[in-house]
Amino acid sequence: MQFQGLIHQFPKEIRYLIVAFLVTLSIGFYGGISFVRTTTDANPTGIEERYLGNEADEEATKMKFKKSEGEILTTVHSHILSLSVIFFMVSLLLATTSVNQKLKLFLMIEPFFSLVFTFGGIYFLWKEIHWMKYVIMFSGMLMTLTYTASVLIILLQLFRSKKA
């Protein structure tokens, strides 16, 4: 079955539905990113403090405690499940666009790797493997960039005129 360029043939109502879905999904996605930025200060030290606490830091202005095993497992479990569904749905929509096949394949598959590295990294950071904070930061940024690129491509393709 041919998916390349299929998005241009979708009826107007389906295209509007996809736009509404992507806008709503992105509000939630970027709301989560905003929460991460607020709770970690978007830096490796903040990431480490978020999960391991800062009780030893006498100069800390706000006391943070190490997350419990239940909190870590819940965070990892819920984020991997929900984000994998989100990335799968976005990838299905991206598959119907008429962009370069290699770029499309990268954007469809990469978020799943970043998802495992980000939330697997959080678990291993919690297990006191401190250098994982850099893996978490890099993979989280890559996951956000690929999501953003995918959504922008889909939206641009939805507004392009239909192919003959």
Rank of each mutant, 00 (worst) to 15 (best):
T24V: 14
L25N: 05
L25P: 00
L25H: 05
L25I: 11
S26K: 03
I27T: 13
F29M: 09
Y30N: 07
S34L: 13
F35D: 14
F35Y: 14
V36Y: 14
V36Q: 13
R37Y: 14
T38Q: 15
T38L: 15
T39E: 15
T40M: 10
T40Y: 02
T40K: 03
D41H: 12
D41K: 10
A42P: 00
T45C: 01
I47F: 12
E48Q: 15
E48M: 04
E49T: 12
E49W: 15
R50M: 13
G53M: 07
G53Q: 08
N54M: 11
E55I: 06
E55N: 07
A56R: 06
D57M: 06
E59R: 05
A60N: 02
M63R: 15
F65D: 03
K67N: 09
K67R: 08
S68A: 03
S68T: 15
S68F: 04
E69Q: 07
E71D: 12
I72S: 06
I72Y: 05
L73F: 06
T74P: 01
T75A: 13
T75S: 02
V76D: 09
V76S: 10
I80Y: 00
I80T: 07
I80V: 15
L81E: 06
L83M: 12
V85L: 13
F88S: 11
M89L: 14
M89Q: 05
M89W: 01
M89Y: 00
V90T: 04
V90D: 03
S91E: 01
L92V: 11
L92A: 05
A95N: 04
T96M: 13
T97C: 04
S98L: 03
V99M: 08
V99N: 11
V99S: 06
N100Y: 01
N100M: 03
N100T: 00
K102E: 11
L103D: 01
K104I: 05
K104D: 05
L105K: 11
L105F: 12
F106G: 12
F106N: 07
L107V: 03
M108D: 05
M108T: 05
I109C: 15
E110Y: 07
P111H: 02
F112P: 12
F113T: 12
S114P: 09
S114D: 15
S114T: 14
L115A: 10
V116E: 07
V116M: 13
T118N: 06
G120R: 01
G120A: 03
I122A: 13
I122W: 04
Y123K: 08
Y123G: 07
F124Q: 04
L125V: 02
L125N: 00
W126D: 01
W126H: 10
K127I: 01
I129R: 00
H130C: 02
W131N: 09
W131R: 00
M132Q: 02
M132P: 00
Y134K: 04
M137W: 03
S139V: 03
G140M: 02
G140E: 00
M141K: 09
M141H: 06
M141I: 10
M143A: 02
M143Q: 09
L145N: 04
T148Y: 01
L152V: 14
L152N: 05
L152I: 14
I153F: 11
I154P: 12
L155I: 13
L156E: 04
Q157D: 14
F159S: 08
R160P: 01
R160E: 13
R160S: 13
S161M: 09
S161F: 10
